[in-house]
Design a protein around this nucleic acid. Structure first.
Lengths: 230, 230
DNA sequence: CGCATACTTGACGTCATTCAAACCGTGTGG
DNA sequence: CCACACGGTTTGAATGACGTCAAGTATGCG
């Protein structure tokens, strides 16, 4: 399907927002939209022709699988995020949909040409790349020293922040985009520990579990305290 | 001191290598060289006027300190690496010299202008940023699930690779750029565990310790095996 | 209904941390 | 020169947090 930028839900926040209407049209001609269902893979580690993409809606995970078959989630991608290792001949990680997701995909060569042709796009992608780097380092900080409880508290805090679009305020209630197993893989824990610590957070009165995926923050302050981020 | 690009040790590999001689001259006029001794800080988390810099020689660490005062090393910077969070009003992390280091520093505003003026520079920094992102995710992978032994083996392997400039081959012998404490902070372990595991790696015959900082690889294959990277 | 998938809970074991002490190389002052 | 202090490191023993193994409980779907 051809792109219809005019109805794009992230047309003002994605990297291509910096292009002029004409430039955007030219780039759009090279792109295609694609829908991934939960669990479907955009590309796998090692793929040589891995596409690039902007996420329009849904959520993706960037992950790798070690020799023993354990998955490690390295990053989450939210709408208006950009995926693609531009200067590598092959992908280093898997990219998989966490929920039904719509993307706007491009061949790597087309993006590379666009970066040459439109300096503003290169700057926009640089900005995004630095933001991704910061996110990666934040996760590194989290998984480095913190206890299981602190990691979980911090992750819940981040999800609550992401769920409320106002960025500085927390959503009081939200749905976890990840299964227990995915949370465990992201934080370097096990499913069982995640489950237990969620129970403990509930007992402490920091959160309430609503069904399998729903979380309500009953004491956001306590959550921040436990996360070790003042 | 003014910059003397003609004698720059990384003039062919740093981001500014993509500039024409005239462009480079113009940029150089805005920069200054600076020397940091071990332990000296380039900038601290929260600094509003954090400079940008290219590392000419030596090594830096990017780190953060949590509420309990524990340092966590998030990244190492090697010569020709670029430091600076371009689109953030303040620095998120500390940057400190691990060894005596020479840098080429710029005010953030000058780099931002250069990125606007020289599209090739923006692309070069994008490339570098993506490489940093990959390095950060590799570290994340490492600290996520692996045992203390595997983390240490992988780190030693990386250092051996970095010490031999040929990139695909390992140095047989090298000096650790980090103290035990810094290794521990980087891998999310304690000093004692690092010390013990180094001893065990030596007993197994994978490495030999030569003085406090020297490491000789006596069985690189075993090291790779233990690192869990096939 | 029956099976599959995800989650929870418990008992037990293990690995890394913690606390404590000793060790080593280096620089300083007597 | 030796005594001493100091930072970095090593080593030991005890504790504890998280992982492992193993049931058992939803929830959903064919």
């Amino acid at each position: 399907m051809n792109l219809a930028c005019s109805t794009c839900p992230v047309k003002e926040t994605a990297a291509c927002a910096v292009l002029t209407p004409e430039e955007r049209e030219a780039l759009a001609a090279a792109g295609r939209t694609r829908v991934l269902k939960r669990g479907e893979m955009l590309f796998a580690a090692g793929d040589e022709d891995a596409a690039c993409a902007t996420l329009l809606s849904g959520a993706l995970k960037v992950s790798s699988v070690d020799v023993e078959g354990n998955e490690q989630i390295l990053a989450l991608v939210h709408p208006s995020g950009f995926i693609g290792e531009l200067f590598s001949p092959f992908a280093h990680h898997d990219v998989v949909a966490l929920t039904e997701s719509r993307l706007c995909t491009f061949a790597k060569v087309d993006i590379e040409r666009a970066i040459e042709d439109y300096p503003a796009l290169a700057r926009a992608l640089l900005r995004r790349s630095q933001a991704d780097l910061l996110a990666s380092r934040n996760l590194l900080e989290l998984t480095g020293h913190a206890s299981a409880e602190a990691r979980l508290a911090a992750l819940l805090h981040d999800f609550a922040a992401a769920a409320s679009e106002s960025s500085c305020h927390l959503a009081r209630r939200f749905e976890l985009p990840l299964t227990r197993g995915e949370i465990a893989n992201m934080l370097g824990l096990t499913i069982e520990t995640v489950s237990r610590k969620l129970g403990e957070l509930e007992e402490m009165g920091a959160i309430r579990r609503e069904g399998k995926r729903g979380i309500a923050l009953t004491d956001p302050g306590l959550l921040v305290e436990l996360s070790g981020r003042g």
